[in-house]
Design a binder for these strands. Structure first.
Lengths: 199, 199
DNA sequence: ACTTGACTTGACCGATCGGTCAAATATAAT
DNA sequence: ATTATATTTGACCGATCGGTCAAGTCAAGT
């Protein structure tokens, strides 16, 4: 009787779903195991601790974001700056979908965990810092291309890409705090207009 | 033997300090009582639940922000848009102070709780939503004055003030995720340059 | 002197926390 | 068929969770 789906993967998926929709501390190992249909002993066979599980969830979620959202949003079939708008649009549509399914705006998985755990768990903080750095790199690359074709000029690419990521995260947070996705639709278009001049 | 300081206030202060520097879920009622030098029974004499305590902490923290940070940042001794820069500067200095004291960038108290609890506790979510609305009103008022004296023209004041607040929150979150205050110094100046045009 | 009500104390509740472990079972290699 | 390894099971651990409660202390009002 081979497992219908991989046990380890089911734990990973359940943890992502539960922690994303609630919080790290509010979701216990027991709840994750119940949701995954797995006993606690099996959980600790695959993951040495809740923290390690969370690190694995962070990696897996980032890979999915990268392969699905980022690849699609930043594809070079449209001008660079338009890709930023598309990134916002796709994020908006994802949150709208979740809202329809669950009744809640859940925000950004990385932003949520960064906010909750950055002061408490250094390994997790470092992983999220790395992921944010990767996301920023995606934006930075778009800005470089935009400069190369003259869509944008004379900006501090490093600071501007960071500012755009910050703005994105802030909009996600406000949308979550209002349990309302529409402000994403209103505010995301301004993301591509942020500029920080070179020092 | 009258209490040196008010018990209720000591609970409030301890809760704010502990929850702000860690998280809502990570700080138990027992830890708050220990820090405040109060027994659990006394705690529940003053506050019916941990949630109600948290609502009271939100109110008290907002009042302090309003009376100290906002009053100072938004004082009309300088041009409107310069006040936004001052708001960023004062926030940066506060976080730098906390970092020096504790070794940690703790971000925005309201943003932290919004991120952790918005999907889990509706009364708390609503309180934070109201506080964000008040903060946005402060920015909105600055923008109105800026328009009145011609410092700014032709913008959607409602959306722009919301965008500036989002940007502020996002910068605070990134600073926390990097445990580094300097990005606040780099990114906050761009807050006053965000514009969303009228539809 | 007596009562009232605010406040404090410390013991206690069932539930859940993250994590452990020995034993059972399934799988694959030889 | 036997061995070795991977996986699963369910009982169990001490600690902590938010919250309750009866009893006691204390100051103020009458």
């Amino acid at each position: 009787m081979e497992p219908v789906v991989d046990t380890q993967q089911r734990i990973l998926d359940s943890a992502r779903e539960l922690i994303y929709s609630r919080s790290y501390a509010d979701v216990g190992v027991a709840a994750i195991c119940d949701h995954a249909g797995v006993k606690k002993g099996s959980f600790y066979h695959f993951f040495p601790s809740k923290r390690d599980l969370t690190l694995a969830v962070l990696d897996s979620h980032y890979l999915e974001i990268k392969d699905h959202l980022l690849k699609q949003a930043f594809a070079n079939d449209i001008p660079p700056m338009a890709r930023l708008a598309r990134f916002g649009q796709l994020s908006y549509e994802f949150q709208k979908q979740v809202l329809n399914d669950t009744g809640r705006v859940i925000g950004c998985f990385f932003g949520n965990l960064a906010s909750e755990l950055s002061t408490q768990d250094e390994p997790i903080r470092l992983r999220i810092e790395q992921i944010f750095s990767n996301l920023q790199s995606g934006i930075r690359q778009v800005l470089r291309e935009a400069i190369a074709i003259g869509e944008v000029q004379d900006i501090d690419v490093e600071a501007t890409s960071q500012a755009m990521l910050a703005y994105f995260e802030g909009v996600m947070l406000l949308a979550k705090s209002q349990n309302n996705v529409e402000i994403m639709g209103q505010l995301f278009p301004a993301m591509a207009q942020i500029r920080i001049s070179p020092r």
